[in-house]
Amino acid sequence: MTGGYTIAAACAPVLVVLLEVTVLRTGILRLGRFWLATAITLAFQVPVDGWLSKAQRAGRQLPGPGQFGGAVAMGHPGRGLRIRARDDHFDPDALGTGPGGFGGSGRTAPAGGRPPVTDARRAALLAALRLTVRGGLAGVWVRGHIPAGPTVLTGNHHSWWDPFVAGLVRPAGAGQALLGRRPRPAARRATQVSPPGSRCAPGGRFTFASAVPDRRAARPAGTACARRSA
């Protein structure tokens, strides 16, 4: 129910005015002191509510150790999913870097596999990607070990950052596919892999799955996960 709160909040005052005008007819809306009282209440309410509504801490977005073979957590600074290098969820096992910068040091270089593009265009593209992501995201962490070889990324929520992050996490990666939250059967057939298996916990993160060649029909674990996230 994305946006449900916004819609309801926008409808509420309209309904109140309608109720007053058509049914109650108390005339309170014509009183200056009503609007003054409303303004005073609002002036207190906004800071108080703002303080009460804690921004979602990034630590919640990170999966627990051992939960995933590997995961990327990402956040957007303006959307309460901020991820920063803070002590309370610093992950010494994490690959990648925080706001300090994106490592281009080959930490994410895959074992084996040759880069698909090796010329200057690739370097320029990666530099642009790095700039874009560093400008827009507070940080990107990779927890765990991204399996060597082809990888499937399945976001359990969508963001237009997905391909950017995917490109940076595996800059010299071998085959890589980015699937939607509910990979369509056609996409699954095309990539010949299953969606990530057992766990699709909510939260802003990707789950990684090793590319499992799916020679059999749809695997039950994968389909169950896709259904549950619907």
């Binding site: 002191r33 003054l36 209440t41």
Partner: peptide, 16 residues
């Protein structure tokens, strides 16, 4: 919170 809002309104109404 509604009680606080009512107190505010009532005080303003009182003054008149």
């Amino acid at each position: 919170v509604p009680a606080c809002a009512m107190l505010t309104y009532e005080v303003l109404a009182r003054r008149r």
